[in-house]
Design a protein around this nucleic acid. Structure first.
Lengths: 352, 352
DNA sequence: TCGAGCCCCGCAAGCGTTTACGGTCCAGCA
DNA sequence: TGCTGGACCGTAAACGCTTGCGGGGCTCGA
């Protein structure tokens, strides 16, 4: 129940120092004493109070995971992949969600991590310079997903290149009016991602000799609902695109939903390409850029554990994963013969 | 940097006790002294070490969230809804994922929470009696999502009734061969959910005078992929159902994907009903049972905060939310006229 | 003027560990 | 036998707070 190290020491007839040493495998204790102490502790159901242990030893065996959303696929995937690695290394996970409001006070926010965690994992957060400095001042390893900062561990993909690849795929299919459903660049949390992908989109267009049209770029929430609203805006205008590049699969799903409601067929009338390779993308036959999210989560966790084991090994090279175009059935050449589908054919049989 | 309470005390010309009292708003300090101390602390960028504070005070202002998966929609939703409430009450979130392997040692696992957290939130975990006892022994408030246990706070829906409602909907449409894609009851983590929904399924059939056919019940992973595999099994047999009830929307999506691959139209050839009201359900026009997941997460967090504020208020009544049938376009009456869809009509225009 | 009572505040004892330091004991060597 | 050194182990000082207890000063009523 309330077993303390003293009780174990008393029961074993040794000092608390010996108990502590025995239990954590430190030297300075004879093998037989250590064994006996361990048995007694086990039998008493004793385990050291992490609080006291941390206070005394100075390190917390805890890492903070800081992210902007918990209820979105991407973050769950990262969390799910990182957790086993971290837990496997005996580390605890402290969850911090920073919304837009708090982002302003992020400096203060990070301050709260002081003496609280041994490492910090940031997932797709656009950091200001002062925030970066605040992080550095923590004096603990920092891991980043989705962007990189000098001196911090990081895993990411090349969003610019990936976006260009996606758009190039559409260009190759003969599309010229290509709508973009992009993240809000004002949104601190997705800053780099939204900016980079939009940049890649424009770059690909320009390389093809097409001037980017601001009217074709709609910013929205990184969600199906956001994608739906953005698509509604896109198709409520005179000049409608023949293809859409959505910066996330979920946005793409929303866009497809809207197209469906408008009676536009995918890919016959409009091609749609997403970004992520969300599990549902396969279900919906969505062409997308696969960015192996789980792998990113796994890798940053591995890096974090390594950095914790060997504190002097800070600042290894950023890991850049190569996204891959996954072609499915939501993209097609422009000017396909248009046919009316019969009622209820939404989930119709593929052409035999 | 390394500012301790002593430094603040020294700078303010008072004792550490006064600093502590001022900062945490305890009585016994004059208003002006408290104000001055607070200002100095603020200006020095001081914040108390949570570790030391906890050791001394005895409570941790931390709650553990224990769940079986991190990379699934349901859990992200719960987490996302509970987090703001908890954080708003000044509580930290410690994340514990318990897989199947660890579930066996859950007693030991919970033991690790001792003296570590002020409260525990369990999400859809099938608990054995000894695990329940281990939890009780922790002596802290426990909150449950998805099932309830005497003496613990809990939020859930009536899975049996909800499943029956779903099946009844199919029965009303004239279906008699109704396949079930259900969770694995061996899976500790989803024990109650899988069992209850299967029970509700059978009950509805029996009430309609139809004998449940074990061949029509396929257990699978609670995921799109699991649903796909289960559906493949279901439709690889001689007697094929005319409708499917999937115990989760994600399973339903997988099933729809398979049906699509097999060339079966939804709902013309096969009706599909899911469970959850996943955001994507709207996109895919999936008929489903809405169980307001976020609301469940929010409510259990509120209960937890209340229990923490008022320790003697343990064991209030369980909250039972009423699921609601949301009819969309994936279910239809049996024996619809069958029509071949033209090629590429997967995302076809609705009949005008 | 004196005592009671209250308001502030400091003292110091924890909270349950870890760990630097030093002591004891015995083997081994001269 | 005397001394050195190493293996074990205990003592006690942190770690950075919180908080019960008590003391000093001031107000107020008699």
């Amino acid at each position: 129940m309330e077993t303390t190290i003293h009780e174990v020491a008393q029961r074993a007839g040794v000092s608390t120092a010996t108990v502590s040493r025995s239990l954590r495998g430190r030297s300075g204790v004879s093998l037989e004493t250590a064994k006996r102490v361990r048995e007694i502790a086990e039998q008493m159901g004793y385990s050291a109070s992490p609080l006291a242990s941390r206070l005394a030893s100075g390190h917390t065996r805890t890492v903070a995971v800081v992210l902007p959303y918990l209820d979105r696929w991407f973050y769950g995937e990262i969390l799910g992949a990182a957790e086993p690695i971290l837990r496997g290394a005996g580390l605890d996970l402290l969850l911090y969600r920073v919304g837009d409001a708090e982002a302003r006070h992020a400096h203060f926010s990070f301050q709260r991590l002081r003496k609280r965690v041994d490492g910090v994992l940031l997932v797709t957060l656009g950091l200001t310079d002062v925030e970066v400095e605040a992080l550095r001042a923590l004096g603990v390893p920092v891991g980043l997903v989705g962007f990189d900062v000098e001196g911090f561990e990081s895993v990411r993909i090349d969003d610019v290149a990936a976006a260009s690849t996606a758009v190039q795929h559409l260009l190759n299919l003969g599309h010229e009016q290509i709508g973009l459903i992009c993240g809000n660049e004002e949104d601190q949390s997705m800053f780099t991602v939204a900016r980079d992908r939009r940049f890649g989109y424009r770059a690909a267009l320009e390389a093809a000799g097409i001037a980017p049209d601001p009217d074709l770029e709609i910013s929205a929430d990184f969600s199906a609902h956001g994608g739906l609203k953005a698509a509604a805006q896109l198709f409520g205008r005179r000049r409608r695109p023949s293809a859409i590049f959505a910066e996330s699969d979920e946005m793409a799903f929303g866009a497809m939903s809207l197209l469906h409601r408008l009676g536009r067929r995918v890919p016959d009338d409009v091609s749609v390409i997403g970004f992520d390779d969300h599990p549902m993308a396969e279900v919906l036959d969505l062409t997308t850029m696969c960015q192996r999210v789980a792998e990113q989560g796994r890798l940053i966790a591995v890096r974090m554990v390594a950095a914790l084991d060997d504190p002097r090994g800070a600042g290894t090279e950023p890991i850049h994963l190569a996204p891959e175009l996954v072609v499915r059935k939501s993209t097609a050449a422009r000017h396909t013969t248009r046919r009316r589908a019969p009622p209820g054919a939404l989930y119709a049989k593929k052409a035999g």
